[in-house]
């Protein structure tokens, strides 16, 4: 299982910061997170299943996209982008 690392407010929606989830891609892992914690649906992935524009997903420290491959030992960090105003 890959490890997903969250910060607030996502960690509050999911009952904690660390989650071990199955999935072969970033999208599959994030969908698994949504299935486990429906409250987070729509926060990271939009209706199209795309990562929101101002959310960054890192896989082992490298910027990842929806189809980025994930293996059991990978760490996914979900972070807000350094944008905004």
């Amino acid at each position: 299982m890959a490890t997903v690392m969250l910060r607030a407010p996502l960690s509050e929606l999911c009952g904690g910061r660390l989650h071990n989830l199955d999935g072969r891609t970033v999208r599959e892992v994030l969908h698994a997170l949504e299935r486990s914690y429906p409250a987070v649906a729509g926060w990271i992935l939009d209706e199209r299943g795309r990562i929101r524009e101002h959310v960054n997903v890192f896989v082992n420290g490298e910027h990842g996209e929806e189809e980025t491959s994930v293996v059991e030992t990978d760490r996914l960090q979900i972070l807000p982008a350094i944008t905004g105003g």
């Binding site: 407010p9 996502l10 409250a39 729509g42 926060w43 990271i44 939009d46 209706e47 199209r48 299943g49 929101r52 101002h54 959310v55 807000p80 982008a81 944008t83 905004g84 105003g85």
Partner: peptide, 28 residues
């Protein structure tokens, strides 16, 4: 949210806790 998209929230007390409404999404 700049990061996490649009939501509607409801409450009976604006100084208290707000609850996120469901169903605000377009067809997948």
């Amino acid at each position: 949210s700049w990061f996490y998209g649009p939501k509607i929230w409801t409450t009976d007390d604006p100084a208290g806790e707000w609850q996120q409404a469901d169903g605000l999404a377009l067809p997948e």
